[in-house]
Design a binder for these strands. Structure first.
Length: 573
DNA sequence: GCCGTTTTCGGCCCGACTGTTTTCAGTCG
């Protein structure tokens, strides 16, 4: 089993935590954390990079030493230094550091004074009242530790972005009613449009923060007030979601929004850039000495740092700052750029609505075209269409198209990719479709190589156009099946096929990093909703957000093209 | 451990809140 980027990142994160407990140089610790983040965000597998003889020190934050350690991990699946360190610092202490309120210093103290080595030890120590006896600890800390352990056992998952939005909306509405409050927005990973959100960071501006703070901590859905000061408070809602509120004066709004939008890595890089220019950047503004030179808007801050404005979706320290400096940032695709949807279902298979209802939905969104791509025969549970039923559907589409004026209904199907890589319908009918969407719906557990080759074989069919939900992941439910995404994309480029960014909230598949790799490889992508009702067509915004995180521009997106242009792209020679 | 149009050595983001303390260290974002 090849070592994945996630494996390497986890080893480095773990090493960083144990180093911190071991009192190592904090910047050395950060170097490992950085490396973990960089590797995690890489679209290509590091193991493959090495196989191709790439020089890993070209990667941001990876020097000679770390490159050597990565090679060691890829070669042996282990890191000798980590194992050596674990002889001195019990490995389980890293678990404890992940508990909120416990950092390296306290974990170390707990270990030294109470011989705590595991979550169980910690719980026992807390229950028997021994934690409060350590200098610097007290009854409150002891209580917090017990709470944190209980929550860890419950382990609330990250929310899908849409779920977070549903929580945020009513809360924002309430905060906006407070007198004296001007602006209330959500910042953080939510504003960066990450596929999942671990907490909500809300930013408000007000002359006087007292009222809005009070409203916040008294919000009906609050289960626990974690902390509350005059400008900042943290609560936990009943569903387990943590929400932070910061209140700043109007003159700091831009700086605060920039700061609370993150990411942390982006901010660190930005602040270092400010410092290099003799400036200081904080959530209150950009300062030269004591004078504030920017702060009212984000645009102003980036401008004063000699950078083009960086869209929130790009702020991950994945090269956006250099691109902003060189004025080479992408002009990110927008929902308005899209002219149609290339993947949806009707009640002929497992959709909930009729074809005309789906058409009306697409027309209301201002689209020029919509592909009807119902499931095919193998997917019995979804009432998949065989060639005969599909023929009838195609005739129906012809008749409907005559009534639709300039709007065009595209003939399509979501064709199952069978285990041997053949397609679930004969060429004689695929030939008559405008766009052939193909997908894997079973045999997810094939080894990486076989799964990859299964799909590439399917692409060999000259009627194959778009691979739907290419990794098969379901957020919080099912991991992506093992697949060599780079090889898949290279095969698609060679054959003139395309991949899909599936916009369903729990799919968002391809990932942001995959989108970035596709762009780098010159592979265009479709952003499709895979709608099973007309209302779901509006999920397009989620897919667009994901694509924006992957640096995609309108020119990189199939369904941002007019139908004649798209038709040309879909024609394989 | 990384990195370099101020540097190959000496830097490495910045501030709020808590709990414990009596002026601050630790943690978090």
């Amino acid at each position: 089993m090849p070592v994945s980027n996630g494996d390497i990142a986890r080893i480095f994160e773990r090493y960083a935590m144990l180093l911190e407990i071991d009192d190592a140089n904090p910047f050395r610790v950060r170097a490992y954390q950085n490396a973990a983040r960089v590797i995690q965000g890489l679209p290509k597998s590091v193991a493959d990079l090495l196989g191709e003889g790439e020089d890993l020190t070209q990667l941001e934050g990876i020097g000679k030493d770390l490159a050597g350690k990565i090679e060691e991990i890829v070669r042996t699946s282990r890191l000798g230094k980590l194992e050596a360190l674990e002889k001195r610092v019990p490995a389980a202490l890293a678990e404890l550091m992940a508990l909120p309120g416990l950092g390296a210093k306290r974990v170390k103290l707990l270990h030294e004074k109470l011989e705590v080595c595991s979550l169980e030890d910690l719980e026992r120590a807390a229950r028997t009242g021994r934690i409060r006896e350590i200098p610097g600890f007290g009854p409150k800390t002891e209580h917090k530790v017990l709470n944190a352990i209980a929550r860890r056992r419950g382990r609330e998952a990250q929310l899908q972005w849409v779920e977070a939005e549903q929580v945020a909306k009513p809360l924002l509405r309430e905060l906006r009613t407070v007198t004296g409050v001007n602006t209330v927005v959500v910042a953080g990973s939510f504003r960066r449009s990450r596929d999942t959100v671990g907490d909500l960071d809300i930013l408000a501006t007000a002359g006087d923060s007292t009222r809005v703070m009070q409203t916040f901590v008294n919000y009906e859905d609050v289960a626990e007030i974690v902390s509350s000061g005059s400008t900042r408070a943290t609560v936990r809602l009943r569903n387990g979601l943590q929400v932070d509120l910061r209140v700043v004066p109007e003159a700091s709004y831009g700086a605060a929004l920039q700061y609370f939008t993150g990411s942390k890595a982006h901010n660190i890089a930005l602040r270092a850039r400010a410092a290099k220019r003799g400036l200081k950047l904080s959530e209150y503004g950009l300062f030269k000495g004591r004078a504030r030179v920017a702060g009212r808007s984000e645009q102003e801050i980036y401008r004063k740092l000699k950078l083009a404005y960086i869209e929130p979706e790009l702020r991950e320290d994945r090269g956006e700052i250099a691109a902003a400096e060189q004025r080479t940032l992408p002009k990110l695709v927008k929902v308005d750029d899209l002219r149609g949807d290339l993947h949806c279902h009707t009640n002929a298979s497992d959709g909930r609505e009729t074809m005309p209802a789906m058409v009306r939905g697409a027309q209301e969104l201002g689209y020029e075209y919509l592909a009807i791509s119902d499931h095919t025969q193998r997917l019995r549970i979804a009432n998949g269409l065989d060639a005969k039923r599909l023929r009838l559907q195609l005739a129906k589409i012809d008749r409907l198209n005559e009534t639709l004026g300039r709007f065009r209904l595209l003939k399509s199907a979501e064709v199952d990719i069978l285990e041997d890589g053949s397609l679930d319908l004969p060429d004689e009918i695929l030939r008559d479709l405008d766009v052939v969407v193909c997908a894997v719906h079973y045999k997810f557990e094939l080894p990486r190589k076989r799964q990859t080759e299964r799909i590439i074989r399917a692409m060999d069919n000259r009627y194959f156009n778009i691979l739907a939900h290419p990794s098969g992941r379901l957020l919080g439910e099912r991991d992506a099946y093992p697949i060599d995404m780079e090889r898949l994309m290279a095969a698609a480029v060679e054959r003139g096929c395309f991949l899909e960014v599936n916009a369903q909230p729990k799919r968002l598949d391809l990932t942001d990093a995959d989108c970035r790799m596709a762009k780098d490889m010159g592979l265009k992508l479709a952003i499709s909703t895979d709608s099973h009702s007309a209302a779901q067509l509006a999920n397009m915004r989620l897919g667009v957000a994901q694509a924006r995180r992957g640096w995609l521009e309108a020119g990189d997106v199939l369904n941002a093209q007019t139908w004649p242009a798209l038709a040309k792209l879909l024609k394989r020679s």
